[in-house]
Computed example of a mutant assay.
Amino acid sequence: MTDTVTDPPAADRLFARSAAVASCVGFVLIGMLQALYGPAVPGLRHEFGLSPAGAGLGLSLHFTGGVAGVLAFNAIHARISNRALLAWGYALMAAGGAGFALAPTWPLALAAAFLAGLGFGGIDYGLNQLFAVGFGDRSTAMLNVLNAHFGIGAVLGPALIAWLGPDAYPYAFGACAVLAAVLVFAGSSGVRTRAADAPPAAEKARPLGVSRVLVGFLVLYILNVAVEASVGGWEPTHLETVGYTATVAASATAVYWLMMTAGRFLVVPITLRHAPELILAVCAAGMTVCLLLTLIRGVAPLAYAGVGLFIAPVFPTGLAWLNSALPQARRAGAWVIAASNVGGVAAPPLLGVGIEASGIHAVPSLLTALSGASLLATLRLIRLTRRSTS
């Protein structure tokens, strides 16, 4: 299945070229900021006298702020311009990053993490939503390019902490705050300032078919991000359990995240020729097969890398599919992005419960079951979207 690719007229483009570049830098920033909390844990424990669980609250508050930010910015988007939405998102990240770097007490640091998360959610929602509609038939490709830069940031963040040392985490968060402050102006200029259109009556009515399609997307995103986060969280433990060294296991996990970044760049030419739903079906099948292969010890590290490659296009490509399947539901993207954050937060600990009951060797089977459910959800969603447009 192929599509004819056309660019929107210049007058209808939401982004100037400079604004598109700045948006990619913005996604490097949010990827970097999210990835700093984990490597900073030793420094946080030393600075504030925290337990490991207490230090982990920083990332939890960041994610909580992220979900709140997505929903809050979605609620006000119809009343403010696109430029204002992005400027406020970057400003909140700048304030939160600086606050976390300078906080004299742990409660103030947690409040700053929540504030940074609010801005994170605003930028995550705002840029994904605008890229989904701002590049015409190239929107799917541009969404993958945008989200690939998140992966670049997620690699740079831990590398920066490794270079500076965990006790120097304030400098890393401070650097993020400075970059966010620059983007308050550079990241919103070149973006059309028109306010988002008010939701049409069709969205308010919520026909049954639209409701089922939206629920289908929510389920797909929860399952997909659950697989993504659980592989990243449990891959090293599984590989060490089956006999790989800690160094090999850590390196294989880094390769998994790098393949997610590479996969989003590699899929760009494919998105220009094939429909999003076909790409997602192939990706869901591919990652399920790769997870089955992780049952074989000798190929497990390579199989996990394959999972990263296949799962990479799902999040951005699914947003483009959502926009074409439910053009009348302008707020659907926000609910889907919020749902993906819920999946990322809830899945790893829930998977841990299953591992406690079945043993660490059950990781591939549990992950395959999640991925298989994602494949079934994708196929079901394809039928639903075809039915709703027929």
Rank of each mutant, 00 (worst) to 15 (best):
T6W: 00
P9Y: 10
A11C: 05
D12R: 15
L14W: 13
A20K: 00
S23V: 12
S23L: 09
S23F: 05
F27C: 06
A53Q: 10
G56F: 08
T64Y: 11
G65H: 09
G66F: 13
G69Q: 07
A75Q: 10
R79I: 05
R83G: 06
A84S: 12
L86P: 01
G96N: 10
A103R: 06
T105I: 14
A109Y: 02
L110M: 06
A113S: 15
L115T: 11
L118N: 04
G119R: 03
F120C: 11
G122I: 03
G122M: 01
I123Y: 00
Y125I: 07
N128P: 08
Q129G: 03
G136D: 04
D137E: 15
R138Y: 10
T140R: 15
A148F: 05
F150C: 03
G153M: 11
G153E: 12
A154L: 13
A159N: 09
L160N: 08
A162N: 09
W163L: 14
A175G: 13
V182W: 11
A195F: 00
P199L: 15
S211G: 08
V215W: 12
V219T: 08
V219P: 01
G233Q: 15
E235W: 00
A246G: 03
A252W: 04
T253R: 09
V255T: 13
R264V: 09
V268S: 08
P269K: 10
R273P: 00
A275S: 13
G286M: 06
L295F: 02
Y304V: 12
V307F: 03
F310V: 05
P313C: 06
N323C: 06
W335I: 08
A339E: 01
V342L: 15
A347D: 00
L351V: 15
S358D: 10
A362E: 03
T368M: 09
A373Y: 07
S390T: 12
